[in-house]
């Protein structure tokens, strides 16, 4: 049990996907302008990460490793993620239109989100068991969502401030990320 907690905490806060590993940055600055968007994106990414972790683990351990072709993992994993995202999109579209309207536009973005491919590669290189992989994916996703949500809350307030002209928009967002990163740095040494 303590091993799962260690993995979760380590991926969620200490080695936070956005602030420390810089995974999923493109979507981070794109969708962290509004709190509601950040919430949907965070949930969607976490969901896809967990499903991708399970599927790639199964493929890795039932096909790639037995046949000794682990070096194929990059191409296989990205194809799995791409088709997975497509299936999730279709499924949500058929079953729940409200959910689709909330998530739909983010799903294609998730295919090229480094966080998803990142977690599958981390799981493979750390040789995690299936349970550990799921916990790692959850940790990574939760860490991603937390930072995205905090960031969007701050950026909503930032909209009301009046920074120097050349700092407006992205530069100030990067500075916010820096301060958040320093704050999260304090979590180091927890496990």
């Amino acid at each position: 049990m303590s091993r799962f907690i260690t993995i979760f905490v380590s991926l969620a806060v200490i080695n936070n996907f956005i602030l420390v590993r810089f995974l999923g940055l493109c979507s981070f600055f794109g969708v962290s302008k509004k709190l509601s968007d950040a919430l949907s994106m965070g949930l969607a990414v976490t969901l896809v990460m967990v499903v991708a972790a399970v599927v790639t683990w199964l493929i890795n351990h039932s096909v790639l490793i037995p046949f000794g072709v682990e070096y194929m993992n990059i191409i296989i994993f990205i194809l799995v993620i791409a088709s997975l995202v497509q299936m999730v999109e279709l499924y949500i579209k058929r079953t729940n239109m409200t959910l689709y309207n909330a998530f739909g536009i983010y799903l294609p973005l998730i295919t090229v989100n480094c966080a998803v491919l990142g977690i599958t590669l981390i799981n493979a290189s750390e040789n995690y068991s299936i349970a550990e992989s799921i916990v790692a994916a959850l940790g990574g996703g939760v860490g991603y969502a937390i930072v995205l949500i905090i960031m969007s809350g701050i950026r909503e307030k930032l909209e009301l401030t009046d920074p120097p002209k050349s700092m407006r928009g992205l530069p100030v967002a990067f500075l916010t990320a820096m301060l958040l990163g320093l704050a999260f740095f304090g979590f180091g040494g927890m496990v």
Partner: peptide, 22 residues
């Protein structure tokens, strides 16, 4: 040390972007 920490990357790119715009 701040600059070599992950946070330093955000700081440098923020300042560079602002400089280019300025």
């Amino acid at each position: 040390v701040l600059f070599i920490l992950p946070s330093g990357a955000f700081l440098v790119i923020a300042l560079l972007l602002a400089l280019f715009r300025w």
